[in-house]
Simulated assay, not measured.
Amino acid sequence: MIHALMKLSPPLHHLAADPVAAPEGVTVRCAAANFRWEQAVSDGRTDEYNAYVDVVATHNEWQGEHKGYLRSFVQVAKDHPRVSESFMTVNSLAHLKEDLDNTYLLRLESLDSMVDSALLGPAIGEAFWLRFFNSQKDLRKDRLSDADEKLRGEFVDQWNVRRVQARPMFAAFLNDFGGDLPAFVKADWPHLLRDRLGLTHWPSTPGKPLPVALICYTLDEVREARLAATKKGAVASFSRPTVLDTEMSAAFVPAPLLVGGESYGYTLDLANTGLPSAFTPELLTFPIEYQPKHIKALGFISRAHPLQTDAAVLDARNRHVQELQGLPGCGGFGEILP
C-alpha cells in the first residue's frame, strides 16, 4: 500500500485534527477525518487546493471554500474550456487503468426536477413517467413505436440540456449487483442502490417519495466520450473518488491506495449492520450524454436510510474502516473514532 497522505496547509491541518473537529459534531468530525486519511491526492493537486482554500479559521469557512473549489475545478460547466480536474494529469495518482475490460456500469439518478418541472410540463416530464413507469420492459427494448421513441428521445434530450455541469459521474459495476440486469430490476433496486452506494441525501424531503431512474452504460461508451471531447486536459476516462471530488460528507470514506491501477473507492453500505463481508467498488467516469437506451428502470425511494442518528453513522464508518484495515497491507489505514 502507498502511504502518501495529503500535505494540508497549516490552517487545514489544524482544522482536520480530531481534537479540533470532534467538538463540532459527527458530520464535521468524519469529514475532517477523511482529509487525514486520503492517500490518492497528488502533492500538486493538494498544493492547488491549499492555495484555493487559503486561510480559513472555522470548519464552516472551510466547507464554503471546498464547495467553491468543486465548482471551479471538479463540477465544471459544460461550456468550460477544460475538463474536470478528476481526469487531468494533476490527478494521475487516482486514475484507473484506461484498458479496463468493457462491462456495464450502474448509476442512480434523481428525476424529481424532471418529472415535476414546470419548464418541461406534462407533455414531456409527466408524460414520460406515466408512459413508462407501468410498462418498464419497454424501456429496455431496442425499438418502440414512433410516438414512444419521440417521447423518450425528447425527455432525454431535455434532461441532457438541464445537466449543465460536466461533472464526474459516480458509478458502480453491474457485476457487483449480480450481473443480471433483468433480475436486478425485479428487486427493490432503488433502496438497494441508495443504501449500497451510501447516498444519505435521498430522499431529500422526508415523507415525499423521490422518483429515480436506473442508468446503465458501458466503459467503452465512457472511453469514446473522452476521446471525442473537445475540452482541454483529459488524459483519463476513469478515476477513483477522493475527498477533492465530492462534497464533504460523513457517508464518504476514502479507501487505501493500492498499487496496480485498479484501486477503486469503496462505498459505505448504509444497510449493513455488521462488518462488511465484501466492499462495493466505486469509480468516477468521464461524463457522457445520456441516451434513451441508458434508462433501464424507474422507481421511487420512499423510506429513510437506516443511519438516522450520529451514533449510527459513526458506528457504520468504524466498521467500514475496520474492514478496510483488514485488506492486505492496510493495517495502518484510517482510525477507529471513539
Rank of each mutant, 00 (worst) to 15 (best):
I2H: 15
K7G: 10
P11S: 08
H14W: 13
V20A: 14
A21D: 11
P23N: 09
E24G: 01
E24N: 08
R29S: 09
R29A: 14
C30G: 00
C30S: 10
A33L: 14
N34R: 07
F35E: 09
E38A: 07
A40G: 04
S42W: 13
S42P: 11
D43V: 04
G44M: 11
T46Q: 08
D47C: 04
D47V: 02
A51M: 06
V55H: 06
N60Y: 05
W62I: 05
G68I: 09
G68L: 09
V74L: 13
Q75A: 15
R82A: 14
F87E: 07
H95N: 06
D101H: 09
N102W: 05
T103K: 10
L108A: 09
L111C: 03
S113E: 08
S117E: 03
S117C: 04
A123G: 14
E126A: 15
F133P: 00
K137S: 15
D138F: 05
L139M: 10
R140Y: 09
S145R: 08
D146H: 07
D148W: 05
E154V: 04
W159Q: 03
N160Y: 03
R162C: 04
R163Q: 15
A166I: 01
P168D: 12
F170Q: 11
D180T: 08
A187R: 15
D188E: 13
W189K: 01
H191S: 13
R196I: 02
R196Q: 07
T200M: 09
T200L: 14
T205G: 01
G207M: 01
G207W: 00
P209I: 00
V212D: 01
C216R: 15
E221G: 13
R226G: 01
A236L: 11
S237M: 03
T242N: 09
V243T: 12
D245P: 07
F252K: 06
F252T: 09
F252G: 10
G260I: 12
L268Y: 03
L270M: 14
P276T: 08
P276C: 07
T280P: 03
I288N: 02
Q291W: 04
Q291N: 12
Q291T: 15
H294A: 02
A297S: 13
L298G: 05
I301G: 00
I301A: 00
R303I: 04
L307V: 14
T309V: 06
V313C: 02
V313E: 00
V313Q: 06
D315W: 12
R317I: 12
R317L: 09
V321D: 11
L324P: 11
G326I: 01
G329S: 08
G332P: 08
F333E: 08
G334L: 12
E335I: 13
L337C: 07
